[in-house]
Each structure stands twice: as structure tokens, then as C-alpha cells.
Write a protein that binds this DNA or RNA. Structure first.
Lengths: 138, 138
DNA sequence: GGTTAGTACTAACTAATAGATAGCGCCAAC
DNA sequence: GTTGGCGCTATCTATTAGTTAGTACTAACC
């Protein structure tokens, strides 16, 4: 068990990252965690460990392809841990890494706030649609 | 000036919202604020008021179409306020509503955390790509 | 013992969506 | 008078998401 190519702790630590810059890797990672399925996967895994198909049932509407793709991206970014038992049939468990857990708490905070404020959003929508509809008096 | 169809304060307040349910409106709104451009627009507007093209320059890489579309969705959801002066040339200013500001602080928290942790993400990626690359020894 | 269902995926194809480009009517600056 | 800026929208194409079928095997049911 060698420790392969040593990655010095500070190889990337000098760099500055800015999500507002097109092409910055931080924007890429942001899209992984704030993407349509990224948020839901992260928040689901915050509840605990899930197997692939259980996660698919939890995240209603996700296709197998997109779930696999999302998990692979999150795993590469070090946010999700994949534990595979090479049995037959295969058993693969997904969980959050410590880093992923930090992201997940922030996402959870956001979506819990959102769910609580949805009545306000619905009212805003109703007002908006009303106004739009009105000045088009037949 | 009648006050149109009164929208009772509690018309939507009994309903429960769950982003994990396919087809729930809360998921729709979530996608508006966590979408690729939604996050960046919200965080930019947290810095202050922007005009359309100034915002377009701030959010590097966004197309006119997507910026317009994103702003319209956020406005309808009551997160962004649009103030248009009907002068020539037109002057349109975008800002956050109080509701939008609440969402924006949470998004800001997330992206600031992310930018700070990007070195960890980069290291995770390097480790991951290494491992993948390795067991394909030419 | 043969059918059905489940496991974790990938490959191939199609539907939806994002992005690029051009145009609008008008004005200010060079 | 030509160029560029304002805030968009319409049209067309490139990218991406979603759907379906298949893999190799087991466990449960009739």
C-alpha cells in the first residue's frame, strides 16, 4: 500500500475561485450540487445511506441515467462516498463524505426555507399572473 | 381602481410542499433559484440593483435569452423586483424583494463555502482520476 | 422448473432545452 | 453618418436530458 503520487496539501490552496467567471471549476462544481438532481440527491443522502434503487425511489422522477451521472459527478468532487460490495447481485451504498455533509446542511437550510415560504411564492405568482392577464382586456 | 380578485392571505397556507415529489410546485421554484443561472443572478442582485445588461456582464457567460428567461421566472415567483422607466432608451432595474433577499443569503452562504472548499474538491478529483487511470495500466 | 422481479448500471435513440445570431426602434457619441 | 448601447424577442441549431432496452445473475413464487 504505497500512497501513490503524493498530492501536496497545498497544491490548489493558493488559487482563487470565482463562480462568476465563466470556465472556473468552482462553477462546474456548483452546478453539480445545485443542479436539478444534485440538490435532491445531496439532501436525500443527508437523511442517511441509500442504495442506488432506493435513492431512485426517494428522488421521485429521476431517471437511472441521470442518477448515475449525478452520483458519479458528486463522487468525483469528493462529496459522495460510494461503497460497493462485489456480491451477486451487487450491493452499492451511497453516503455523504464529511465535505458533502457540509454542503448538504446548507442545501437543507435552503429547501426547508423554501418549503416554508411557498405560500408567499404562490401568492406572488397569483398576483403576477393576474396583472399580466388584466391589461389584455378583450 | 378596484382591488381585483382578493387573494386571501391564507389561500395557500394549508398546503404542504415537498421538493421530493415530482410535480410539486416547490420543486419548480427550487429549480428557478438553484438553476445554472438562477443562483448567479440571485447572488449578483444581493450585491445591489443591476440593469439588464450590467447584470449580463456580471454573470459571465449568460446569454440574453437565458437571462431574460431567468429573471422572468424569478419575478413571477416574487423573488426579484423589476422596475421599468418607460424612457427611450428604456431603463430597467432589477433588485431582490425581501423574500428574494432571504433566499439570496442562503445561496451566498453556499457559494462562499464552496469557493473556500474548492481546494478540497480539486484534491478529491485528482485522487479520483488517479485511481481510475491507474487500473488501466498500459 | 419456469416465470417474474430485483440488483446496478450502460448504450443507443429521441424529446426537450440551452445557446448563438439577428433584429427591433430609438438615441448619444465620435 | 456610422458605431454602439438600451432591453428585449424570434428563429434556428447544438447540447443535454429522458426513455427504452439490455446485461449477468439470484431469490422468491407457483
Amino acid at each position: 500500500m504505497d500512497d501513490r503520487v503524493a498530492i501536496p496539501q497545498d497544491e490548489f490552496s493558493q488559487l482563487t475561485f470565482d463562480v462568476f467567471m465563466r470556465g472556473c471549476v468552482s462553477r462546474e462544481t456548483m452546478e453539480h450540487i445545485t443542479g436539478r438532481w444534485g440538490v435532491l440527491v445531496m439532501v436525500a443522502l443527508h437523511e442517511g445511506t441509500y442504495r442506488f434503487n432506493a435513492l431512485r425511489r426517494r428522488v421521485d422522477g429521476v431517471s437511472e441515467k441521470m442518477l448515475a451521472q449525478t452520483l458519479q459527478a458528486l463522487e468525483r468532487d469528493g462529496l459522495v462516498h460510494r461503497e460497493a460490495e462485489p456480491t451477486i447481485p451487487p450491493k452499492v451504498e451511497y453516503s455523504l463524505t464529511p465535505l458533502g455533509a457540509q454542503a448538504a446542511t446548507r442545501l437543507l437550510d435552503l429547501i426547508e426555507w423554501l418549503e416554508g415560504e411557498m405560500p408567499a411564492v404562490m401568492e406572488a405568482r397569483a398576483r403576477h399572473d393576474q396583472a399580466r392577464g388584466d391589461h389584455r382586456t378583450t
